[in-house]
Amino acid sequence: MIDSQTAAFIQTGVSISVAACGADRLPSMSRGMGCRASDNGNEVRVFVKRSQAAELIENIRYSARVASVFSLPSTNRTIQLKGSDARMEAFDAADLAVIEEHIVLFLEQVVPLGIPEGVVRVILAYTVDDLVTVVYTPSAAFSQTPGPKAGKPLD
């Protein structure tokens, strides 16, 4: 599980990515569209686009092992979570508000860094029927903020 501070962090304007490996140990990854931490930090739900994540979804179904990183552009603070019980779930329309809020928060992060809003909106553009949810229990958490402590488990 993750603590409330980590849970709050991954639901801010972070950049999100999810990866899983296939039978040949070849990893694949896809951008996350937002995430939701629930069950007191025992469950993380990351939303991805099926059209962009075919290989990732196949890999999760094969191995159930996932890694996801959450990085806040303005500070470079980065956290990686891993899980071994990942599964795919249909997207719950109730989570649309989470995605919309994530886009707003992410824009607030990257537009001041010089990335045009139009580019960000294209990257995070979606149709509801293309969305799918990766669900897992975070079993390990690491700090990946660049620096000497990068890669160390979160305290």
């Binding site: 990515s17 999810v18 990866a19 070849l26 990893p27 990854m29 990183v69 990085s71 891993k82 990946q144």
Partner: peptide, 22 residues
């Protein structure tokens, strides 16, 4: 490096790892 790349690898147990690339 304007938008950082993401790099994914896999350990010998099949556990993936993700990181940002400058």
């Amino acid at each position: 490096g304007v938008i950082p790349g993401h790099i994914a690898t896999c350990d010998s147990d099949g556990m993936p790892n993700l990181a940002y690339l400058s």
